[in-house]
């Protein structure tokens, strides 16, 4: 059996401490700048905060994985070099990278620190993953959420590194690291600026009948009836009118969260080394609830008993959950 490491999100130092206290084996986080793909206002860590966070996590037996998972614009790599230097100096346990240039820099400059390949690299074939392993010494790949468990099992047999899969949270199915929808509407880049649907461009408008419209950069991307559950204001999960449809429909994805709690034993059997919980933008309350639930489930699996699974649907986007492509390619 693989180790089934539990990798948990932290958008703030308090969230990191909450994750460690709730039983995280590893916590991933980022700096307050464009070097990570959750560069949201009021979120993330200063170098001083990261130093304290690393010390706290290590005292609690947890690792800290630093997300450097955005793509530096050409000729503007100083921020990423500085972030890698700071992370290595502070003793982070791994860098999570997406860009080949960042991977190459870290591999050459900080060879003592593990490299994990971010989902933002969208490496989903054995050939792609092996390339990153052989070229940059990548030790773990975070797989895109588009593969079935039999496909994951087959990939595991053909690659020389560990596999990490998302098990809870955002159900992103775009070709990650390549999505330009936010850039198209706002001019800011998810992949280079680290902002998907920047809050400064988001507006919620309530109508007299109690319905609510969510808008990004002046573009209405969904309209929720008074009692309808809402989702994130992202273009990929917007509901649109089209000539061939009588009503608005989800053209790309739906506001629904991934929840693989019931598939954990199958994932372990398929050779998955680490389970990732999405949600660095979420609260301590979310971190406490989700990490605790998955901690108990993973411990049950390690002990060889059926996991006791808490109901987490209240924390899901649109208050709906799915096993997505992990169960079947026909999930939608």
């Amino acid at each position: 059996m693989t180790q089934a490491e539990l990798v948990c999100p932290a958008g703030t130092p308090a969230a990191l401490r909450t994750a460690v206290d709730a039983g995280a084996d590893a916590v991933y986080c980022g700096f307050r700048n464009a070097t990570n793909a959750r560069n949201f206002p009021g979120l993330n860590f200063t170098p001083e905060e990261l130093a304290e966070a690393v010390a706290y996590a290590h005292r609690g037996g947890a690792k800290v994985l630093l997300a450097l998972n955005t793509y530096p614009p050409a000729g503007k790599t100083a921020l990423w070099r500085e972030a890698a230097e700071t992370g290595a100096r502070l003793g982070v346990d791994a860098f999570i990278v997406a860009d080949m240039g960042v991977a190459d820099h870290v591999a050459r400059t900080h060879p003592g620190t593990r490299l994990h390949l971010s989902v933002q690299a969208a490496a989903s074939s054995p050939e792609a993953i092996r390339y990153y392993c052989e070229s940059f010494g990548v030790r773990r790949v975070v797989l895109p959420r588009i593969l079935t468990i039999p496909e994951i099992r087959a990939i595991r047999k053909e690659i020389p590194c560990e596999i990490e899969t998302f098990v809870f949270g955002n159900h992103g199915l775009m070709v990650e690291g390549r999505c330009s929808l936010t850039n198209y509407v706002t001019g800011q880049s998810t992949n280079m600026d680290g902002v998907c649907s920047p809050a400064s461009d988001v507006e919620y408008v309530r109508s007299a009948d109690g319905s609510m419209s969510s808008c990004l950069g002046g573009v209405t991307i969904d309209r929720f009836a008074p009692d309808e559950k809402a989702g994130y204001p992202t273009i990929c999960k917007g509901r649109y009118l089209a000539p061939h449809r009588a009503e608005g429909y989800y053209a790309f994805e739906e506001p629904v969260s991934l929840n693989l709690a019931r598939m954990l034993p199958e994932l372990v059997a398929a050779g998955v080394h680490a389970f990732k919980i999405e949600g660095r933008q979420r609260s301590k309350s979310y971190v406490r609830s989700v990490v605790s639930a998955f901690r108990r489930a993973v411990d049950d699996i390690r002990a060889g008993v059926a996991p006791d699974l808490a109901d987490l649907v209240a924390l899901t986007e649109g208050q709906k959950e799915t096993q997505g492509a992990f169960r079947t390619k026909k999930w939608r």
Partner: peptide, 23 residues
């Protein structure tokens, strides 16, 4: 409680400058 969750459930309403609320 988780702010995103109560926003999804529509128990919380946010208007005006969204970045200010997020911060």
């Amino acid at each position: 409680e988780d702010g995103d969750a109560v926003f999804f459930s529509r128990d919380l309403t946010v208007t005006g400058n969204t970045e200010a609320v997020v911060r």
